[in-house]
Every structure is written in C-alpha cells, then in structure tokens.
C-alpha cells in the first residue's frame, strides 16, 4: 500500500461531510503520508476544498473520523492554510506576518526572527514595509505563504494557491512549496493545474462527486489512472455524475 500506518500523518475513516442537506463528501477512506506533497485533484464541485478544510479543522466531519497520528513525545499537529484569494490585512507586509504568528505567543525576539526568515524564504525583504494591499496578486500570495511558513506548521495546506497567478508568480509559489517539503513540512495541495500537479506531487488523491475514487503515487496516476473519472479528467473530457 501507499502509506503504511507507521508513516501515516492523518487518516480519514468513512468521513462524510454535508452542509445544508448537500452531501459534499461521502465515505472518504484515505491515509495521508507524513512526507512529501500530496495533491488533491478533481473537477469543480468534487469536494477538494472541503477535504482541505476538514484537514485544517475549519470544518468538522458530519460522520466518520479524521485521526491525526502524532509521533510519541510531540505536541499537537499544527496546520497552516493558504487560500486561493488570500485575505491580506490592512497593514504592512511584516505586520501581516507578525499578526499571523501572534496567537503563538512567542517571545518578541523569536517572533522577529521568524518574520525575517519568512520574508527571506518568500523573497519579500524589499517589500517588508509596504502596505500589504498594495502588492500585486503574486506578491500577495507570496505574503500568504510567508504568513503560513512563519507559523512553522507541521502541515501546509494550499487551496489552489496559483489559480489566478501568472507563470512567474506561479513558479515562485511552487518553489516555496518544494522548499517547504524538503524541510520535512507536509504539503497538501489542491490544484486544477495538471502540469503543476505533475511538477510537485508525490501522490495524488482524485476526487469525483464527493468520493475519493483514486489515491496513487503521482507517476502511476498520470501514466495510468485507474479510474474512469480520472482518465476522463486527465484527457480533458467533461463527465457528469449524478449524486
């Protein structure tokens, strides 16, 4: 199997999620590995963002369980979330980062070091004192990444972070995500961009109509998708599934 329990970070056991009577996710059985970049793919409305929000704790399963597996002796698993359209606070770039880590209640010197490191990791040093809302779309998304990195999360959750960015800005975000995964931070990425998924993924979860229809290593998924919905999706065919 892909992820033996010893290297598992989180597992979904018959997880369903419904909102206002709409069943958005049904009977999800998944194990997320501790390492690497896991990509969630699927057509619009398949439940990709919902799955990511469950991981972030922004939503709770309606039924079933989501279990985090902590190695013995470590604290709670911390996640950080980067939204497709980041909410940039009405303050400077560095103040945005400092605000993001304020709930961690770090000593002042340590907080400053984290802000500096995040600015440097996301190539934002020259914009440190610029008002966050004046930045370009790509810079704003780098700031959102910097805010997430400063929290030093165990898991970085990215919800279509490059959906509205140009290629250069997209590349910058991808490099930050790769660097993050190299430093043993787990990355879970929702994307529509098959090219991006090929460039970044270790494994791919394919969702269709609220169900996880496939979870394979990236190479296997792209060369020989097992399920018909995934084959259709990768071939660019629209499939309509009754739910």
């Amino acid at each position: 199997m892909l992820a033996p329990e010893t290297t598992a970070l989180a597992s979904f056991r018959s997880v369903s999620y419904a909102s206002a009577g709409d069943r958005l996710l049904s009977d999800i059985e998944l194990t997320i590995a501790r390492q690497g970049i896991t990509t969630i793919m699927g057509p619009n409305g398949a439940g990709k963002s919902t799955l990511l929000r469950l991981l972030a704790g922004l939503l709770r399963p309606t039924s079933g369980t989501l279990t985090w597996h902590r190695p013995a002796g470590t604290g709670q698993i911390e996640t950080a979330f980067v939204f497709q359209r980041p909410v940039i606070l009405r303050r400077t770039v560095s103040a945005n980062i400092r605000h993001a880590i304020s709930p961690l209640k770090l000593p002042d010197a340590q907080a400053s070091r984290r802000v500096d490191a995040a600015l440097s990791d996301c190539s934002l040093e020259h914009l440190r004192d610029a008002p966050g809302r004046r930045l370009s779309g790509g810079e704003q998304q780098r700031l959102a990444m910097a805010r997430a990195l400063a929290r030093q999360p165990d898991v970085l959750l990215l919800d279509e972070p490059t959906a509205s960015l140009d290629p250069a800005a997209t590349n910058a975000i991808e490099q930050i995500a790769l660097a993050c995964a190299d430093k043993a931070t787990k990355v879970v990425l929702v994307t529509h961009d098959a090219g991006q998924a090929r460039r970044l993924s270790n494994d791919v979860i394919f969702l269709n109509a609220g169900r996880a229809v496939e979870h394979s290593p990236a190479a296997a998924f792209f060369n020989q998708p097992l399920s018909q919905p995934a084959r259709d999706y990768l071939a660019g065919r629209i499939t309509i599934t009754d739910t």
């Binding site: 950080a80 979330f81 993001a100």
Partner: peptide, 10 residues
C-alpha cells in the same frame, strides 16, 4: 476575515 482568522486559531 472570518475564515482566515479561524485558520490562525485566533
């Protein structure tokens, strides 16, 4: 700001 602030555990 709601969802962002919730993601920060604010």
């Amino acid at each position: 700001y709601d969802e962002y602030l919730r993601s920060l555990d604010m």
